[in-house]
Design a protein around this nucleic acid. Structure first.
Length: 494
RNA sequence: GCCCCCAUAGCUCAGUUGGAAGAGCACCUGACUCUUAAUCAGGGUGUCCCAGGUUCGAGACCUGGUGGGGGUACCA
């Protein structure tokens, strides 16, 4: 046990006092007549419980503020009503303690609704002091590590996580109403697929096999299209073993939607309608501020092709000559864009797009170079039917018309694998990663997925939407850590 | 991985040119039977993140580390 501060010793001695008085400081069930947020009137007899948030003692009377999930109310505790013994017991209460009280509602002379305490039950004694009431908890490390304190101290934080919960609930409802079926697919996958990204590796003892935490549910959801489900969605965690930033947490929550007989244009409509619906329900309108930027969700949302976007911003025409990652990189560098590696990755392009779309309201960047989208249907030789949605400078969604040609799918996988291996080789000089640790060796083609396509998959549109990022946008949160209850941090030394 | 910034009481923070560790809230003692950031009188409760170094003297300066934040890179 770590050293105990004076403040904790003080509270422990109160705890001992209570125990010696024959009272249990940690009670069991307490049946309430009301929540604190519920309407009550003068004269009502109520039985409520909550955490003591403030204490104002004046000798033989005390006022305290009691808070529960739904609200806060003042209680009035007096020597006359409780008697010496129990009033002294109340003297051992601290801010942070949970108590149950019973009594009649009245109004003080300042017209504040207050409960006159006739009976008092200690429900839980708090041994550590809460953060200060006026300035709250600002230390971000404590806020993330000890989220419970953050939730106690900040109304804003409570609102953010309430909104997150409502948003997911509404999203489910909206999709259910449109005939989508919610499904659950494996998070432990023998071959991780469906997205870029380095997976987390784990091992199952019973089968003696390595497994990976999924980087996306995509390939399993498409198997369900093969199986005859026409509209499916999944809302759950994916995991990527990569850098952590204000927009990336190693585990994050994504919505993926697949609709048979549809394409990426339908997905654009769907995501527009869904996000507007959520914003209107949760924020009451289509216009709001995100980090000082004005966001307007009024339709139609801007659409520009990937080619246009890069032409406008960097005067580079990606399709003017032979298109591959290296030549693209050269062209961009000639236009003054700073790039580190020899090649252009999808993320580098996203970053460029994010920068230039940072102050804008929603924009769909459509028709990506096909070599960046191995799972998307080609529009023509060079482009794929794919879009990414940017709002407030953040990539929020990604969708395409799904490739359902099994032979082409295999070729695209093979091309991708080759490209990866080349990249591994060129990177090898700089990064000095031993090849067996980079994960390239583990990149396998999901043969069962191809087999499923060979049985026949209907044409379909598919969409992935980052729920954490959407919550960031709607709660004006600057970091993804502000919308994930327990973001990933290094272990604390206790 | 690299670059920059931060770490002082339970919380929020100040700490000058290197010269006796501070404030508000919280807490403790006492007073007080309608307060509400209660008030009044008194009390500082500390591993100044850790380990070295410079110095007569380090919270401050130097080196290394730990944790956090921001940026950047990686993210078919």
């Amino acid at each position: 046990m770590a050293e105990v501060s004076e403040l904790i010793k003080e509270r422990r001695s109160k705890l001992e006092w209570i125990r010696e008085a024959g009272i249990k400081p940690y009670a069991g069930k307490f049946l309430r007549s009301h929540c604190l947020g519920e309407a009550i009137e003068v004269g009502d007899g109520v039985k409520v419980a909550g955490r003591i948030m403030a204490l104002r003692r004046h000798g033989k009377t005390t006022f305290a503020d009691l808070r529960d999930r739904s609200g806060q109310i003042q209680i009035y505790v007096s020597f006359d009503l409780l008697g010496e013994e129990r009033y002294n017991l109340f003297g051992k209460m601290d801010i942070g303690d949970f108590v149950g009280v019973e009594g009649e509602v009245f109004k003080t002379k300042t017209e504040e609704l207050t409960i006159k305490v006739e009976d008092l039950t200690i429900l839980s004694k708090s041994l550590r002091p809460l953060p200060e009431k006026w300035h709250g908890l600002k230390d971000v490390e404590i806020r993330y590590r000890q989220r419970y304190l953050d939730l106690i101290a900040s109304e804003e934080v409570r609102k953010t996580f309430n909104l997150r919960s409502s948003l997911i609930k509404m999203m489910r409802q909206w999709l259910d109403e449109r005939g989508f079926l919610e499904v659950e697919t494996p998070m432990l996958q023998p071959i991780p697929g469906g997205a870029a990204g380095k997976p987390f590796k784990t091992h199952q003892d019973a089968l003696g096999m390595d497994l990976y935490l999924r980087i996306a549910p995509e390939l399993y959801l498409k198997r369900l299209l093969v199986g005859g489900f026409e509209k499916v969605y999944e809302i759950n965690r994916s995991f990527r073993n990569e850098g952590i930033s204000t927009r990336h947490n190693p585990e994050f929550t994504m919505l993926e939607v697949y609709q048979a007989y549809a394409d990426y244009q339908d997905m654009m409509k769907l995501v527009e309608e869904l996000i507007i619906h959520l914003a209107q329900k949760l924020l009451g309108g289509r216009k709001f501020a995100y980090q000082g930027k004005q966001i307007d969700l009024t339709r139609p949302w801007r659409r520009l092709t990937f080619r246009q976007a890069l032409k406008e911003m960097y005067a580079v025409d990606i399709f003017s000559e032979e298109e591959d990652t290296k030549s693209l990189a050269e062209k961009l560098r000639r236009s003054g864009v700073k790039l580190k590696g020899e090649k252009v990755t999808r993320t580098a392009l996203i970053r460029l797009l994010e920068k230039s779309l940072s102050s804008t309201s929603p924009a769909f960047v459509i028709d990506y170079p096909a070599f960046l989208c191995p799972l998307a249907r080609k529009k023509d030789d060079k482009t794929a039917e794919r879009f990414e949605l940017f709002i407030g400078g953040c990539e929020l969604a990604n969708a395409y018309s799904e490739l359902n040609d099994p032979i082409e799918q295999r070729e695209r996988f093979e091309e991708q694998k080759l490209r990866d291996e080349e990249n591994q080789l060129t990177d090898g000089d700089e990064s000095q990663n031993p090849p067996d640790q980079t994960g390239s060796e583990e990149k396998k083609i999901d043969e069962d997925f191809i087999r499923a396509l060979e049985y026949g998959m209907p044409p379909a549109g598919g969409l992935g939407l980052g729920i954490d990022r959407l919550v960031m946008l709607l709660t004006d949160s600057p970091s993804i850590r502000d919308v994930i209850l327990f973001p990933q941090l290094r272990p604390e030394k206790l």
